[in-house]
């Protein structure tokens, strides 16, 4: 099971639409959750709307929280999305076997077994969560809290019986390219999470869409450079796309 967890504090302003990018992610089987972090004032109507839209397009959940509740919220969103994804799969099976659309339509006595299966899968399914962190200038005072929340999430994931891995990205990058930068490759080791963001230099722009696309590529190829070669291949022949379905 694959998830992207976007942590941001405002509107995207550069590049492709993040809502379209999230829809692409869902198409690839990656759920997108969004945490909007606001400490003082509000996130703005536009920002709030965009956050909700990204999560909707990405099949996930969105929440707007202060830094104090961030850790708890990230943990909750990740867990809920895992349950939700499994429930969707189980519901599909239910429909085929029993003709019921959902768990809610089953009588309580029959629900218990289904839920036992969902609980079991929630605990054991392998899980990969890519955290994508908005490192635009306004996020700077919140990064310490974000890092703590990531550590906390790792701790929760470690307790699962199934394998769980985290990767951490931030955007925009310092260089000319405006896509995401990999801070931490897939890991399930808590100690590797120390001082993630010390080297980050903040920039003003917020290219959320392109960054999400970059992370989708990372899921596909396990490397950030994969994107370029994929583009070239795609230009050579349209049929090539089919080879890359994960």
């Amino acid at each position: 099971m694959k998830q992207i967890l976007l942590i941001t504090d405002g509107c995207s302003n550069v590049g492709a639409s993040p809502i379209l990018a999230a829809a692409h992610a869902l198409q690839e089987g990656i759920t997108v959750n969004v945490a909007g972090v606001v400490d003082y004032g509000t996130i703005g109507e536009l920002g709030g709307l965009e956050i909700a839209e990204i999560a909707k397009a990405g099949g996930g959940i969105s929440r707007i929280v202060g830094t104090r509740q961030l850790a708890q919220t990230m943990q909750m969103m990740t867990r809920k999305t895992v349950v939700q994804t499994i429930q969707q799969a189980v519901n599909k099976e239910l429909k085929e076997i029993l003709g019921h659309d959902s768990l809610e339509e089953l009588p309580p006595s029959q629900r218990s077994k289904v839920v036992t299966v969902v609980d079991e899968l929630t605990e054991t399914t392998p899980l990969q969560v890519a955290l994508l962190i908005d490192a635009s200038a306004s996020m700077k005072p919140k990064l310490a809290a974000v890092e703590d929340a990531i550590r906390d999430l790792m701790l929760s994931l470690q307790a699962r019986m199934g394998t769980s891995e985290l990767a951490v990205f931030h955007y925009p990058s310092r260089g000319s390219s405006e896509d995401a930068v990999l801070d931490l490759n897939w890991t399930s080791d808590l100690s590797s999470l120390r001082s993630l963001f010390q080297r980050i230099q903040m920039k003003g722009a917020t290219p959320t869409g392109p960054a999400i696309l970059k992370v989708i590529d990372f899921f596909r190829y396990g490397t950030l450079d994969g994107h370029q070669s994929w583009r070239q291949n795609a230009e050579e022949g349209e049929g090539m796309l089919g080879d890359y379905v994960v």
């Binding site: 850790a71 701790l155 307790a159 019986m161």
Partner: peptide
């Protein structure tokens, strides 16, 4: 027992104090 703890409150949580895992 042996599964991850589903629900917790930060003060009382062993993980919050860096005192161990969240495995039940």
């Amino acid at each position: 027992i042996g599964r991850s703890v589903k629900q917790f409150t930060e003060w009382y949580d062993r993980g919050y104090w860096n005192a161990g895992s969240r495995t039940g």
